[in-house]
Design a protein around this nucleic acid. Structure first.
Lengths: 249, 249
DNA sequence: ACGCATGTTGCGTATTATGCAACTTATGTT
DNA sequence: AACATAAGTTGCATAATACGCAACATGCGT
């Protein structure tokens, strides 16, 4: 279906602004989108009128607006899985000493919807709200193996360990669903290993994935099975807890 | 300036979806915006393409999409005031036993960017991301009295205590800036009193407001001055903490 | 004060969003 | 099970409107 172009342009502007450190000016936006200054100006004004962007009082550059916080937070509040999962994330941190994460499938990617940091680890930038690829993260592989199993066409490498071969990945996914947990062995970030397991609702339908992630030095390959067992048991406990009252998808 | 209408329609759809419990269908959206089904269909597809809305797999109804979480969270992470303020919000809760909130000025409204709940109070729905009016909330009155002092044209009442008279409000604001803290005496929600104080950066420019809110039974008018003093002292401590390294607006 | 860069407004044109109607798909009813 | 009703999508001609150009306005640095 043909997209509404002026709406699409507006949405593209929002995505542009996400990646700019200190906001953008009209001309800068126009250049990036390859449109005229005047169009950029009018689009920005419309976005501003509805609170999706905001002009910095001092620099007059456009920044993402409060309406996005409002809508984003509103959506997070809807996702009751998150509320249920919180204590289990803490339990994961207690038992493993590593950071714990919760993700669901969204837009054919892994959407991180909550995290609990380990006390040991140095402060990590919040990952909540981040979309990550399915094929090279532990949480993502869970969502692929147990849920929507269509492997993306492009397997872009992030490290030299990223699996870019389709059949290798398929084998990994088969292994994952067999043993019940997934591994990311420095396939997305160097020096970081992750272990994840599936979370089910009462109908045994996949709703998300939880897991841990930590430095390769601590999360060694020898101890992977051990970590896997912990993650699986807690994921199972959470699934049981969700029982019959989960109203997520 | 004339707004880009098709962009505006798309943004309006996002706002509509915020207030729907279980998503909306194409026809429903079309009715609300008074446009044709076909237009609604095309707009929704465009929003979906960029992840701003998502179709429920089961019901096929449209919901707010993950991109909003991504962008909203991204914006929250930028706001360093929030990081600095967190311990002070906890301190407020410890000292008063009531819920603590942090807000900044956005879109001529009070944008709640963080909260810490009191252990005493029953679980309150998260207010983070909420936009509230300036003229009838304690945090808002602070932003009015110490920051942008233009009083809105319309003073819509929320309770019978809401101040709808312009000059009365002006007097209250004068009193507020004189004594250093603001009160919301059941002016926004029945049974809820709030007390708030201003947060400044190193240039003595207002950056936000923090305060507490609790049931009128506990936050009595006799103890208001006492609460005010606590809130002021913590707001001052936070302002001092912000010192010379705040990079917010 | 001057020049340069950025941002906004007016206007004619061409693109494109729109509404209608026909068609397709899903849902629920007797 | 067949029908009726509702919801959603597509094709198309028309009307609306978004667009780019150019002129104007504003702000910044030298």
């Amino acid at each position: 279906m043909a997209e509404i172009q002026s709406l699409a342009k507006g949405l593209k502007i929002l995505n542009l602004l996400e990646h700019s450190r200190n906001g953008m000016g009209t001309t800068e936006v126009a250049t990036q989108l390859e449109i005229d200054k005047s169009s950029a100006s009018r689009l920005l004004h419309t976005l501003a009128k509805y609170g999706f962007v905001e002009q910095d009082q001092v620099t007059a550059r456009y920044l993402l607006g409060p309406q996005l916080v409002t809508l984003g937070q509103h959506l997070l509040n809807r996702i009751t899985l998150r509320d249920h999962a919180r204590p289990y994330l803490h339990e994961l941190v207690d038992k493993t000493g590593e950071c714990a994460h919760l993700a669901i499938l969204a837009q054919r990617q892994a959407l991180y919807i909550d995290q609990v940091e380990s006390t040991a680890a140095l402060r990590v930038e919040s990952e909540i709200g981040t979309l990550s690829p399915l094929y090279c993260t532990a949480l993502g592989k869970i969502l692929l193996a147990f849920g929507d199993s269509r492997i993306p066409d492009e397997l872009t490498p992030f490290t030299h360990r990223t699996v870019t071969d389709r059949s290798t990945l398929e084998a990994q996914l088969a292994q994952t669903s067999k043993r019940g947990y997934a591994i990311d062995d420095e396939e997305y970030n160097y020096g970081v290993r992750c272990v994840a397991a599936p979370v089910y609702d009462h109908k045994s339908a996949l709703v998300g994935a939880i897991g841990i992630s930590g430095p390769a030095g601590r999360v060694t390959l020898e101890r992977i099975d051990e970590f896997g067992a912990v993650v699986i048991s807690i994921a199972a406990a959470l699934s049981a807890r969700l029982g019959y009252d989960l109203n997520l998808r």
